[in-house]
């Protein structure tokens, strides 16, 4: 076994909305990911699951309209990549969500009073 790390590169996506959007748009909405996501079972809406996260991210980046739902969805992700293991499009939600968080903080778009909710 090689003692070097890692074989997989994990690029840190900077706050680049266009590349985030392109990555999110590869989703085919199959929903396979929802069966393995730990947060969808405890969150109050579908935005607490991977498909919903992709959906909300696209709608925010396309329309520019940032809702409370989007923020909850982005910050409730565990970055665990369980969804990646079953995703036919090989979308890494963890990288998308880190990128979305970086975008939100760099734009100063996080309002006070927003929180992740549990069902």
């Amino acid at each position: 076994m090689s003692a070097t790390y890692p074989s997989v590169r994990m690029p840190l996506r900077g706050p680049d909305p266009q590349s985030l959007l392109e990555e999110a748009e590869r989703c085919v909405y199959c929903g396979f990911c929802e069966s393995v996501c730990p947060t969808i079972r405890v969150g109050p809406h579908r935005g607490y699951g991977p498909r919903g996260r992709v959906n909300l991210l696209i709608s925010w980046l396309e329309s520019g309209a940032l809702s409370e739902e989007v923020i909850e969805s982005v910050y409730s992700c565990l970055l665990c990549d369980a969804c990646y293991t079953v995703c036919p499009a090989h979308i890494r939600l963890s990288e998308l969500m880190r990128g979305a968080r970086a975008l939100l903080t760099s734009r100063g778009a996080l309002d006070k009073g927003l929180a992740v909710r549990t069902r």
Binding site: G43, Y75, S76, L78, L79, C80, R117
Partner: peptide, 14 residues
């Protein structure tokens, strides 16, 4: 299965 820890700082309940 993730332990849930990564969301601890934002939602200890979740």
């Amino acid at each position: 299965g993730c332990c849930g820890g990564p969301v601890e700082a934002l939602s200890p309940g979740m």
